[in-house]
Design a protein around this nucleic acid. Structure first.
Lengths: 338, 338
DNA sequence: ATCGCATTTGAAAACGTTTTCAATATCGAA
DNA sequence: TTCGATATTGAAAACGTTTTCAAATGCGAT
């Protein structure tokens, strides 16, 4: 492939001049400029971005770490980041950590090694102190979906406790009193937060918390399916289920329907996330909206801004508030006064 | 950030020696090796991959162009590529073209500029000759999901005609005779192929093709929804619908159910792709399995192999055959002999 | 013609690596 | 000891850019 020297030779000028016309970094007399342009065209010249990044120490890349590549949730996150990064003429390099500590660590190394200008990180597996170490590097980094005490201005996160509270409260106001919670068996903060929200709503309605009503499995459709089976098995007389995410809700609904229980007539279900799937299920899933696309977009905007100004602009609220999306998977048992 | 010179200085050796221990490229006496290792550790040294790529002209990156970042279909494609590329110690850079010619072009430029070692490309918008131009570059490239005549050995693709044939034939053998086709309004090859398959099956059963029974819209849920409305509107007495993809099927089913038609009792539906969604819909969607994960994985394996051997290994079949996944969205109208 | 100034230009250094090549150190054998 | 062969080392060139700096050119005013 042609390089800048070839172009210079072909145009009969020095490499400096070529560089100047490429970058518009200084004035060049019209005829030479034309000659250079012509040579570039003729040789199909494309600047080597690696060499460029090396000397500028700017790669025009934003690194993004997600949990999985193929999941509607992370799809939305990636799309949000992609969108704003592309709009600013830069590019995204995505890696996946698959919720595994070593893979997450390795992925972040990779992004750092590639000399990404900035990072947006979604990590569930890495411990706080390791993330703090990263934040202390002098490259713009935003942590998505996780709150690290003392670093609130670098974390874009959702109020998980409130989301779970909303979901549970919704079921309670609809008259449900026996509500199971199908949670994640991964030891992460938001898992705990959601249990708290669930309990808070219960307490508010003076419904005793029953540990047997919570079942934890892997947070996917499969997990929801088996967890639901377990709940049924325990014979607790539940009339409603709240799940850690929509995929689990889908699994739970599948099991319910297959085992002859009608949703929501017999058992109501509330999910979490509001991925595309939720609208498509039958019955359409009542769920908690997790604005992950917007959160990704915001995270990207912040790191990009930091890149320009060297300052973290802490003036915007980084905490998102979930809201209830009412669809068809919850039945009104009986009107109840709050 | 520390560079190789700093390490050399700290360890009291030359940069060449440091390079040698980093890459294990030549023997170094044990004490010096230890000193270097210690210095690297102490300085938290990480080689600059840009500089390295520049001199080696190997970036250890595979570039991937997809249609959209957030869609179950492309999610599976990305996952397949990611999987095999990571296993070989390399990395993936993903870009999205959003089915737009300029964006696809720009994305490919980006990947090429980044000096990706190889490319896996899913393009619907770029014309054949532009893709051929790429294939003629001397870097390993595989085109996914598209067949370019004369370049069969560089294309990993699905037999779309056969997939559509399978779907339509399935409906026909179940006794359906009035079958609508909800297709894509994007002028792409596989769109045409699927119409052909649909027609071929019809002909085989001596059912006349009726242009009014095919409606083309944008290939997403929304499009399926409005297309289904249009089909109903035309009052053609259809008892079954075959759609271009699962998302459209989901939209169609939603419309049917909302307008009081039971699926499959009144109207049967067959989709295409078999994305996760298909299993989760109610009724579970009978569809055509598009092994896109495997296709991505194969494409990646091929380019990686080419990278090592400089030869395209054309010994594996690059054409995938779709198959029917029977679930619950098709009703058996009456037994019919083929 | 000559001077001073502004514009345009090219040579060379820098970015952080790997690799070639020649020099040195080590060692066993004569 | 001395020789040759071998193992280890470091200096320097190379990769393809950008940028600094000094030199060359052009031009209007005297």
């Amino acid at each position: 492939m042609a390089n800048i020297k070839d172009v210079a030779k072909a145009a009969g000028v020095s490499v400096s001049t070529v560089s100047r016309v490429i970058n518009d970094s200084a004035s060049v007399v019209p005829d030479k400029r034309q000659a250079v342009l012509a040579a570039m065209e003729a040789l199909q010249y494309r600047p080597n971005s690696l060499a460029r990044a090396l000397v500028n120490s700017r790669s025009d890349c934003v690194g993004l770490l997600v949990g999985e590549i193929d999941s509607p949730f992370f799809g939305a996150l990636m799309a949000g980041v992609h969108h704003v990064v592309h709009d600013s003429g830069k590019h995204v390099i995505v890696t996946a950590g698959y919720h595994h500590i070593d893979k997450e660590r390795e992925s972040i190394r990779f992004l750092l090694d590639r000399r990404c200008d900035a990072l947006v990180i979604h990590s569930k597996a890495l411990p706080d102190d390791e993330l703090v170490q990263l934040l202390e590097l002098d490259i713009p980094i935003i942590i998505v979906n996780r709150l690290i005490r003392g670093w609130e201005h670098r974390c874009v996160y959702l109020d998980n406790e409130y989301g779970a509270y909303l979901a549970t409260r919704h079921l309670l106001t609809k008259g449900h009193r026996d509500i199971a919670y199908i949670g994640t068996n991964i030891a992460i903060e938001d898992g705990a937060d959601r249990v708290h929200g669930y309990r808070r709503a219960l307490e508010e309605f003076s419904v005793p918390f029953n540990e047997r009503k919570v079942v934890r499995t892997f947070p996917d459709e499969e997990g929801g399916h088996s967890a639901m089976a377990e709940v049924l098995n325990r014979n607790l007389g539940v009339t409603a289920v709240f799940t850690y995410n929509d995929a689990m809700a889908a699994g739970a609904i599948t099991l319910l329907q297959d085992s002859g229980h009608r949703v929501p007539e017999e058992i109501s279900v509330v999910g979490f996330d509001d991925v595309i799937l939720a609208r498509l299920l039958n019955p359409r899933l009542t769920t908690i909206r997790y604005p992950i696309y917007d959160m990704g977009a915001l995270a990207a905007r912040i790191v990009l801004h930091q890149l320009d100004t060297k300052f973290a602009s802490a003036d915007q609220p980084l905490r998102f508030t979930p809201r209830l999306i009412e669809r068809q998977s919850v039945r009104d048992v009986a009107p109840v006064a709050v």
